[in-house]
Design a protein around this nucleic acid. Structure first.
Lengths: 217, 217, 217, 217
DNA sequence: TATGAATGAGTCTTCATTCAT
DNA sequence: TATGAATGAAGACTCATTCAT
């Protein structure tokens, strides 16, 4: 009976197994975003999750599986309740667009979710099913949402007639670019000194999208 | 009499000091684009260049050096004629913008150079000096170029007054996005079936940038 | 039913964290002595320790680190009891010298430790920190020890007056030489047939050191 | 007829093939002494000899062969005309011994030859035929020489009766040690600060060998 | 002969994964 | 379940040696 502990025991190992995968995914998410898939060692992930290397593989058979879980888990959350907001929005379509883009930036663009998107785009070729999944979970519904906004604007005469399919890209591009930038070049802040001020950029972006660059005659 | 060789044999061990680096960079370029930096093994690169493992390291001390060479070789060449074209361009600034964007797409967006840009953005965090290099060689001069166009437009009254710094991003974003898309999700054509028609997209993009989405009253 | 195993199987993958480093050092010691540092491959070391290649690097980050560990482990232990023995020695200084030299031969000269000394002298140029370490751990304390003996002899009038610093070399030289010989030329016994009988040599050596070669008048 | 050289041509490639091996051996000698056999790259050798890598292998089929040549070439020179000097020496045997040891130090101990001896002792195990060769060319004749001196001393009554075979080692040991030291630990002068003054050491050594440590009663 | 580009077997080292405890 | 010691396939890089010129 070696070294009997005194009084109150610190409850190590108290976490339930149900929470483990989540903790591992959380840890992996952060590391993958920080360093990319290849450069992240599975041991690091375990460590950051406060778990041993072996435990990681108890929950995820492969590092790739872990990656997929990370992405899947976090992609689903990329669309909160936007559809509702859209349905109930009072105001012009221009306002709605402005609102959507700002909202997007605050609720995901500048959060970790942005890192996921970057991750997905970076690794898509090596993980076709992730690509497919992302397509289904994010791109398609996102596109639908934006199409609706645009369609409404066109129907009401606020917007001019458009090829919706293409126009959606026009809305998406600056958002994705903003987020890619922040998660790649933007990280090297010390060295790469580029004044990218997201909020201002979005402001201008909305303005240009709606009104164009040309001066009104 | 074992395995009698047929007709003309391709000679092993050809000496081609001058052309080797180019061939190796070409091979690396393709593989890096296909599979990413980490997933590409240096032996593969050598093989694809029709050379032995050792030869690769005769020309590039490190896989990382090879990567840098690939980036340098394929990126630095991107801003040669553009400055000239800009200086001599006859036409409105809107036309110039349209021309620039189309030109960009044809001369690099849809070429392998596009793949490099994707590569750089994907790996920037792990290669700070690549990021810096890219910043200096590509981003800064590119930004200058676009600023000039915009400034000219503003000066002539064709464009409205703008925060140039930010507006440049507005021009760049769709281009980068287009190229990122084509080199990540777009590759998984079989699975991800999204109708991205670059030329049309650019067309619309230019139109929207200039005129905005709003219907003219 | 392929190759039915006999009786008791030695279990692969035994967990012996405590004993591993020692076993690895032991294996490395022998191989380094046998073949030198450069000619010993790390996999061999692992093999001889009954362990896989990876395990070696679990305990020693570098082959060089392993080398250092080997030296440290086998050298630091060389000056434990000697200081005590010296302090408590009853007898003349001449006897003490004779005792010290014989003792040295038995406790390290002819053991594997002798091989290490040879190793250190052979590789010193390529491993400056090993040289420094050896200097601090072995040479300096050893020199101190011998100086004390000599000083005592000089003080008591048993020995004549001497430049101690230099005289120490005189005591050390034959010991080191003996050991170098045994671990280089001496190994090639089959070919190099030289009658080096260490015990006799030391005997004579002590005699000459004390009494000189000259006949007493 | 490209770029015709003017007037007097600088005679590159003038060295005759007869001198090549010597130059290569010279270069190799220095490098082997500096860095050891394993750590010396064959290209370095070629370079230092002012020759291309290929040329080296034109003269020596193997790096090992080169090593052997280096040692053989330089070992033969380890015994100049000492036998003559001995035969004609006027003076006591003690004086002769003193002379021999000082002479040894000046003519080879402190020269590159010392490096060769160190080299041989370090690599003997990996090159048995070198060991054999060294035994035949250096050790045996050297031993004979010293035996003669001692024998003469014993015969004349100047020295006491001795087991010559063993006594020779007594003479050799400090010499070899001195030279090993200078070519291993001694190199790390900056870090290993040990005051080894060869000339003084030899002086004392001779004195002790002849007269012993003991005070004369 | 001389060159130096090319080769590829060989080495160190890493790290995802396994498994005895 | 959890651990972390052990594994070994894999990969970057080296360098003695070859050979086309």
């Amino acid at each position: 009976m070696p070294s009997r502990p005194t009084a109150i025991e610190t409850p190590r190992r108290t976490r339930r197994k149900e929470t483990r995968p989540g903790e591992l995914i959380e840890a992996a998410l952060n590391l993958f975003i920080e360093k990319g898939f290849a450069a992240t060692k599975s041991e690091e992930v375990a460590q950051r999750a406060g778990v041993s290397k072996g435990t990681l593989f108890l929950y995820f058979a492969t590092k790739e599986d872990l990656f997929k879980a990370v992405v899947r888990e976090n992609i689903s959350s990329l669309f909160p309740s936007w559809n509702d907001e859209l349905a109930n929005f009072k105001g012009s379509c221009g306002e709605m667009l402005a609102y959507a883009m700002n909202s997007w930036w605050h609720s995901m663009g500048k959060t970790k979710a942005g890192g996921i998107v970057k991750l997905v785009m970076s690794e898509a070729q090596n993980f076709p099913d992730i690509a497919l999944f992302y397509q289904q979970e994010v791109i398609t519904p996102g596109t639908q949402l934006l199409k609706k906004i645009l369609q409404r604007g066109v129907d009401s005469g606020e917007f001019r007639s458009l090829d919706l399919e293409q126009a959606v890209f026009t809305l998406v591009a600056p958002m994705i670019y903003l987020m890619m930038w922040n998660n790649s070049m933007g990280c090297c802040v010390s060295t790469v000194n580029q004044d990218m001020k997201p909020e201002q950029f979005i402001q201008l972006q909305v303005d240009v999208l709606l009104n164009g660059l040309k001066a009104k005659q």
